[in-house]
């Protein structure tokens, strides 16, 4: 039995990250917690691209390039989200998303 992790092991790891992130998104009440969950999901997809590149599309670097873009975009998204959270915190003194029910029909 070989102890070197293969495609399946890495894929299970990234799927686990994705599922943990999704659980975080669905269960957190703080917007920052939700954002951390989303970031975990985005990073699991970045990991996915690297894994698939390494094991399934070896001679090319498409997946690795995609991974860099994913990380950059996720960073931009996180910065913008944090800026919006700060703005909301100034007016509401909380970023608890379960209290954000101002708008009804």
């Amino acid at each position: 039995m070989s102890l070197v992790p293969g495609l399946e092991h890495w894929f299970i790891l990234s799927t686990l990250f994705f599922a943990i992130g999704l659980y975080g998104v669905l269960s957190r009440r703080s917007a920052v917690g939700v954002l951390i969950g989303v970031e975990l999901m985005l990073n699991s997809t970045a990991l996915n691209f690297v894994i698939f590149n390494r094991y399934l599309a070896t001679p090319f670097l498409d997946g690795a390039v995609m991974m860099i873009f994913v990380i950059a975009v996720a960073a931009a998204e996180a910065v913008l989200a944090m800026a919006i959270f700060v703005q909301i915190f100034r007016s509401r003194h909380s970023v608890d998303i379960s209290t954000m029910t101002e708008m009804r029909y």
Binding site: V38, L42, T45, E77, A81, I84, Q87, V95, I97
Partner: peptide, 17 residues
């Protein structure tokens, strides 16, 4: 602000999926 936070969280989740 509420519109922004809802849009950014949904949008980030949709982009992750």
């Amino acid at each position: 602000g509420e519109a922004g936070i809802k849009y950014v969280l949904y949008g980030a989740l949709a982009s992750a999926l």
